[in-house]
Amino acid sequence: MDNEELAAEVAKESVPAGMPQLDFSSFPNQIFWLVVALVVTYLVLSRLALPRISAILAERQGSIAGDIAAAEEYKLKAKEAEAAYEKALAEARNQAQKIVGEARAEIKKDLDAAIATADEKIAARAAESEARIGEIRAGALASVRSVAQDAAAEIVAALGGKADADTVAAAVAARVKG
């Protein structure tokens, strides 16, 4: 390839202005459309898209936080209910204890009273019985003497003796005493 050909080649090559990026005649066009595109994108994003997306995110955050708070609240309520239940249970137990105690005391009182009256009655009856027994015993002694006197007199009479009533009585009395 000689120099003339090369020169022609060079001339041919440098006619289309090399890099399109350095073709300054297209700059105003690109800059204009870039500004338009940027402004449109910016307006769409800042007016429409971003408020919407941030609202969605906030809403989700809110609903998640709300759900967690609600769950927390329910948990708290459950705890409260449990505490109340425990308290009620303890109270009921106390009450029962008290009632049982009272009942026991009352029953004891009643029982004591009943026992006392019963004891009294028994004592009275026993005294009475004793008195009666004493009476009976006295009566029996007396009747034993008279029966013995009679029997002795009869026996003496049956034996053929003559029994003086006084002597018999004295003998019987001596015998019964002895």
Binding site: N3, L6, A7, E9, V10
Partner: peptide, 9 residues
């Protein structure tokens, strides 16, 4: 011409 060739090279 030589100069052009040298420039291309």
């Amino acid at each position: 011409m030589e100069i052009v060739a040298a420039a291309v090279l």
